[in-house]
Design a protein around this nucleic acid. Structure first.
Lengths: 175, 175
DNA sequence: CGGGGCATGTAACCTGTTACATGATTAG
DNA sequence: CTAATCATGTAACAGGTTACATGCCCCG
């Protein structure tokens, strides 16, 4: 159960409101742990209840906006969790199951869907590479930057892998 | 929601009982779509209710064992599902979040856990490679075999990627 | 003939998903 | 001033997880 700790991580990087967190989850930390705004608001309430974060009505911004920030107890909890042992989640990839199904029952029109996924992964790869370009500019070799760069390179490699697999599968599906 | 179709796929490859399916999910199709025996029994009941599979008391084996097999309507449903459009699931990888957390709050003892994951991925890679060796022996270039081989190579590449990432992260964590 | 293990199942719970609802602020 | 939009939230549900329960066969 990592959503609370993904939130603590994001708030440690920078304090912010629920909607700001939702936006970050759409474009950066969410690449590793996705969450919708409903999950985020529910979990922020629990984190505050637990005494790991606190909130103040935001002086800027509209509506009932609240600014959250991590409390020392929250940083301690995050530190504890980082060292915790947890096995990788069981894998679940519907596209792989579809390939295996088409192998079992014969041609069933998978090629179109495969091309669509190929395009999705190509788009994500392009996005990650644009991050890479932007970040190399502000280079630095702090431990923090190095770790973040490992994550980015991992994301790039994952997309390249998905693209290669899709291309290979397509070659067979189309023949 | 792909569990029913993973079951239809596995039963299309070979008919069998719930416990046999549970074992297959532990060692082959479960690499792409994991499931526990509770999920499997629940879902088999639904599939039979829907008229996609049928069951007979198994003549061999002990207890209340039942043999399931796919009905024509089940094969049709599977064929329909294969061509269906569905986006990849949002990614959720706790280890990546841990790296990002350690980047944000400083050293927190992640190296041990990283080494443990490295060993898990190395073991899985060795397993996949043993499959590869076994399967190359019984080579054939049917469409079915080619598609299955794409899946196996994909699994191998995923493990190699995870191993490379873990090694790179370790190099930074240990320095 | 009784204990252990296999096959099937039940129940409670938690996370994540989807659809909808409300309050507050700003743009026109 | 009212319509659109932003920020926060509620409710119902589905899928997946964990712990436990039952029926039946086989072995000693």
């Amino acid at each position: 159960m990592s959503l609370p700790h993904a939130l603590l991580t994001s708030l440690s990087e920078r304090a912010g409101s629920g909607s700001e967190l939702a936006r970050r989850f759409d474009k950066s930390i969410g690449f590793f742990w996705a969450a919708t705004h409903q999950q985020i608001y529910r979990e922020l309430a629990r984190l505050e209840q637990a005494g790991w974060i606190e909130s103040l009505p935001a002086e800027t911004g509209r509506g009932r906006k609240r600014a959250y920030r991590v409390l020392p107890a929250g940083t301690e909890e995050l530190r504890r969790w980082v060292a915790e042992g947890e096995d990788p989640r069981p894998q679940r990839d519907a596209l792989m199951v579809r390939i295996r199904a088409e192998a079992a029952i014969g041609p069933a029109g998978l090629a179109d869907e495969m091309r669509r996924h190929l395009a999705l992964h190509e788009a994500k790869l392009a996005l990650y590479k644009s991050f890479e370009q932007r970040d190399v500019a502000g280079e630095s070799d702090s431990r923090e930057r190095k770790l973040q760069y490992v994550l980015l390179k991992g994301g790039i490699a994952q997309e390249e892998l998905a693209i290669n697999m899709a291309r290979e599968a397509l070659r067979i599906l189309e023949s």
